[in-house]
Design a protein around this nucleic acid. Structure first.
Lengths: 216, 216
DNA sequence: CGGGAACAGTACCGTACGTTACGGTTCCGT
DNA sequence: ACGGAACCGTAACGTACGGTACTGTTCCCG
């Protein structure tokens, strides 16, 4: 169930249809909950009938939107390079900063709110899609780095999944839940950089073998 | 804004009214989103008119429910005892286990989903109340322990808030977001105990001075 | 015993929204 | 030029739900 929906039919869609999905994203961010089919049609300058023809029903439209957004956030991939203590730390920081950037973006907040609301009742698995393209996708992308780090003797851990979850916690902390609940938490670029470095150093303090810079 | 709403008029309510709020909690957990006033009235065997008389409107009912639930989860207080490395670790584990228990409970999940949905549009600050009684309340309750730990020389950190956020991340990791998004994550009591101990030991590895048991 | 407050049950109203239907317009292929 | 498909704009329908009003019953208090 991890990434079954990651790449599925993301692009059997025409540019016009993708423009509609961008309109949905825009509305989600601006209007939050008032994501009505009429509003989407108005914003996208298309008719409701077209929306239903293209996406079936409201859930279909939302699902396509989530997948479209997910396909746009494919950053932070780890290209297997020569790994030393410094490049490992850099890669960790890069992952952390990217993740913080994503979860603090208005689009991600709106999308997660929608998926969480949906998870409360509906069965159409928006939450699963968001999880697959968010939490689990980044887990899969980070795993090779962790494994390489262990293979090179730079890292020490038993289970890569557990190690990743520790990293995930050190990076995200209370940021996502606070933002989702409407806290006016602001993350500047410099704060993201600093927090990312702190998280990476803490992770290395816990799982690193040649401690690079364990300053608090 | 931290806990302005923590203790406000939690108990100007009759037992009958609290029973209504319990009905709301039950419906939230079972039916998720279908939290309609009619359903509440049916479940609580009261009339809608009574609901409106008692709680004003739907938001008032939800707000009262959130505060009622918050008043029930007052566990995990730290009683200032003599502090040594072992009792510090025990207290940390206790905090962590309690927090994991809370965020993985169906009631908390339903409540947070509701507050997050609400945060998307409405201004009536359900999200703020949940934050004040959840994330920030536990932060305030843990702070004395951290400060005492630092005063006794058992802990080392610059900023108590930052240290707490690290602890928060190590404990919660990806648990809450996965549960909110509908992931079928199960946390048994033994897993909670193990994860709580792991988080406490990791925290001590990062901020402790007399390392008690830094085993992975 | 009588009267009134409190409340259950229910009918009712207005509105918002998902979904469908339809007339009009554009555009493409033949 | 013609026919049809695609699509826009909008009206219309059905339903769900928040909120209000009304009726009848229970129960307390004098």
């Amino acid at each position: 169930m991890v990434d079954s929906a990651t790449e599925t039919q993301a692009e059997a869609l025409t540019p016009r249809q993708l423009a509609v999905l961008d309109a949905v994203l825009g509305l989600m961010v601006e209007k939050g909950d008032q994501l009505t089919m009429a509003a989407v049609a108005r914003r996208a300058s298309c008719s409701k009938e077209t929306l239903y023809k293209w996406f079936g029903d409201r859930d279909g439209l939302l699902t396509a939107t989530v997948q479209w957004q997910a396909s746009k956030v494919r950053a932070g991939n780890y290209d297997r390079q020569k790994l030393d203590a410094l490049s490992l730390r850099d890669s960790l920081i890069s992952f952390a900063a990217n993740w913080l950037q994503v979860i603090s973006s208005p689009t991600s907040i709106a999308l997660n709110r929608l998926a969480i609301s949906h998870a409360a009742t509906h069965e159409s698995n928006l939450g699963g899609i968001v999880l697959a393209n968010g939490r689990f996708a980044i887990g899969e992308r980070l795993r090779p780095l962790l494994e390489d780090g262990r293979a090179t003797g730079l890292l020490d851990f038993d289970d890569a999944e557990t190690a990743f979850r520790t990293f995930f916690g050190l990076v995200g902390r209370d940021v996502q839940i606070r933002l989702l609940l409407g806290d006016a938490l602001k993350l500047s670029v410099t704060e993201i950089e600093r927090d990312a470095a702190r998280a990476a150093d803490q992770f290395l303090a816990l799982h690193g073998r040649a401690k690079p810079a364990p300053k608090a």
